[in-house]
Amino acid sequence: MSEIVGNTAGEIWKYLDKNGATTIAKLTRETKIDEKNIQRGIGWLAQEGKVSLEIVNRAETISLT
């Protein structure tokens, strides 16, 4: 399981590096990664201090720090 989460975190980081800040919904839709794994990957990146989360117009937005 930790390998899946680590790989997902890597995919999220690559997406954000290429596309910039985005909503969680758009990230899930465009990467086609299961929402639960997206949330786990975000947690991994957040724990490492690699991403920032904020609410913008009632949508949860993620970006690289």
Score class of each variant (00 low, 15 high):
62 I>F: 00
46 A>V: 01
45 L>G: 14
15 Y>K: 00
3 E>F: 04
51 V>I: 13
18 K>E: 14
41 G>H: 04
49 G>N: 12
36 K>P: 01
22 T>R: 00
62 I>G: 04
52 S>F: 03
31 T>W: 10
1 M>D: 07
63 S>L: 03
1 M>I: 12
17 D>V: 02
22 T>I: 08
38 I>Y: 04
14 K>T: 11
47 Q>R: 09
36 K>L: 13
43 G>R: 09
46 A>G: 11
34 D>V: 15
62 I>N: 01
40 R>F: 14
47 Q>I: 01
61 T>K: 06
6 G>T: 07
44 W>L: 11
15 Y>Q: 00
13 W>M: 05
51 V>A: 06
14 K>S: 08
56 V>I: 08
65 T>C: 04
21 A>D: 09
28 T>H: 14
14 K>H: 09
58 R>G: 00
9 A>P: 14
19 N>R: 05
34 D>E: 13
18 K>H: 12
55 I>E: 14
17 D>M: 01
11 E>Y: 07
25 A>V: 05
62 I>E: 11
25 A>F: 09
35 E>A: 07
45 L>Y: 01
6 G>W: 01
34 D>N: 13
29 R>F: 13
26 K>D: 15
31 T>A: 06
15 Y>E: 07
51 V>E: 04
8 T>P: 13
30 E>V: 09
28 T>R: 12
2 S>P: 03
42 I>K: 04
